[in-house]
C-alpha cells in the first residue's frame, strides 16, 4: 500500500512546534529547566506513581496468587459480562455515530445545533445519575416496574440494565469523532460519486467509509475503553450479584471491600493494561492521521454551525 500523505502536513499539529525548533524566541535556560521539572514532577506524582503502584500491589502476593485471582470463576464471569456489555454497546453506538454524523455533516436542517448539544449531553451527567435514570424507568418503583415484574422480566439488577447504562455513558464517543471529521470533509466527494452513477450504498461504502475509517477506529477505541471501564453508572443498575451482574470494575470493588487488596489490584491491573493499550492505539492512530485529537476524551462541545448560506 502506498502510504498516503493524508493531511499530514496541515497546520495545527503539535509537531509544527518541533519543526520550528529551535525557536528563536524562548525563555532563559534555567526557566525552561524549571518548568520542565515542575511539569514532569506533577506528571510523575499524579500519573506515573499510581500507574506503577497498581502493578506493584497486584504482584505483592506473587505471580501464583495473581494468576489464581484472574482464573477465579468470579473473575472470569466478570470478564465475560464486561465483554458482553462492550460487545453490544460499542457496535450500537458505532451505528448511531455513523448515522448521526452522516445526517449532520451531509445535510442542512433546522435544529442541528440543538441536536449537537443533545448528543454531547451524556458527557456532562454524573455517572451515578446516568445509572439512576434507568432505575426510574425499569426499576421496581419505576414507570415500567410493575409491568416488568408481572411479566417476570428483569432489567435493573440484571444484564440488560448494565448494557443500557453502558450505552448511555458511551453514547457520544463515535459520533463526536465522526461529526467534525465528516463536516470538514464536506459533501463534494459524495456528490461526485453520485454524478458518476453510484447509488447510495456504493457512495457510502466506496467513498465515505474509506475517508472516515481512521476516525471511526479512533472513536471505537475510546468508546470501548469507557464501555469496559465504566463503574458509577453500572454500579447503580447492577446490584453486584457475584457471578451474574458483576463487571470487571465492580468485581474490583467487591474484592477491595472484602479486604482482598492484592486480588482487587490483580483484577485492576487488567483494566490498567486495557487503559495502556488504549493509549498506545490512540497514539498510533494520531500518528497515522492528523486532526484527530481525542475530542471524546476531552469533551469540548461540538462546534456549532452557523446557518449555511449558498452563494
Amino acid at each position: 500500500m502506498v502510504e498516503q500523505p493524508l493531511q499530514r502536513n496541515q497546520p495545527g499539529m503539535i509537531d509544527d512546534a518541533k519543526i520550528n525548533a529551535p525557536r528563536r524566541m524562548s525563555e532563559p535556560p534555567f526557566v525552561r529547566r524549571l518548568l520542565i521539572a515542575v511539569a514532569l514532577g506533577f506528571i510523575a506524582l499524579f500519573l506515573v506513581v499510581p500507574l506503577v503502584s497498581v502493578f506493584a500491589e497486584a504482584l505483592r502476593q506473587g505471580l501464583g496468587f495473581y494468576f489464581q485471582t484472574l482464573r477465579d470463576p468470579m473473575t472470569v464471569s466478570a470478564i465475560e459480562l464486561t465483554l458482553i456489555a462492550a460487545g453490544i454497546s460499542v457496535p450500537l453506538n458505532c451505528l448511531f455515530g455513523v448515522a448521526a454524523a452522516w445526517t449532520i455533516a451531509k445535510f442542512d436542517f433546522p435544529g442541528k445545533n440543538i441536536l449537537l448539544t443533545l448528543i454531547d449531553l451524556p458527557f456532562s451527567i454524573s455517572p451515578v445519575i446516568s445509572g439512576m435514570i434507568y432505575v426510574l424507568i425499569f426499576g421496581a418503583q419505576g414507570w415500567f416496574g410493575p409491568w416488568l415484574i408481572e411479566h417476570n422480566i428483569r432489567i435493573i439488577f440484571a444484564v440488560p440494565g448494565i448494557v443500557l447504562a453502558t450505552m448511555f455513558v458511551t453514547f457520544p464517543f463515535v459520533a463526536r469523532e465522526l461529526i467534525p471529521l465528516m463536516q470538514a470533509q464536506g459533501r463534494t466527494e459524495e456528490e461526485a460519486a453520485r454524478v458518476l452513477g453510484a447509488n447510495g450504498w456504493q457512495t457510502f461504502w466506496r467513498v465515505t467509509l474509506p475517508n472516515i475509517k481512521w476516525g471511526l477506529l479512533y472513536g471505537v477505541i475510546l468508546c470501548n475503553a469507557r464501555a469496559m471501564g465504566e463503574f458509577g453508572a453500572v454500579s447503580v443498575v447492577s446490584g453486584r450479584i457475584q457471578g451474574q451482574t458483576n463487571t470487571i470494575p465492580l468485581h474490583v470493588q467487591i474484592l477491595y471491600e472484602n479486604n482482598n487488596i492484592p486480588g482487587a489490584f490483580a483484577v485492576a491491573s487488567l483494566l490498567t493494561l486495557l487503559a495502556l493499550v488504549t493509549l498506545a492505539l490512540k497514539t498510533w492512530v494520531e500518528y497515522n492521521t492528523t486532526g484527530l485529537r481525542g475530542t471524546a476524551f476531552t469533551p469540548l462541545p461540538l462546534k456549532k454551525e452557523p446557518n449555511r448560506k449558498l452563494a
Binding site: L47, P249, T272, A275, L276, L279, K282
Partner: peptide, 9 residues
C-alpha cells in the same frame, strides 16, 4: 491516562 483508566482503578 485519567481518561483511559477506569475510575474504580
Amino acid at each position: 491516562l485519567p481518561f483511559a483508566l477506569p475510575t474504580a482503578v
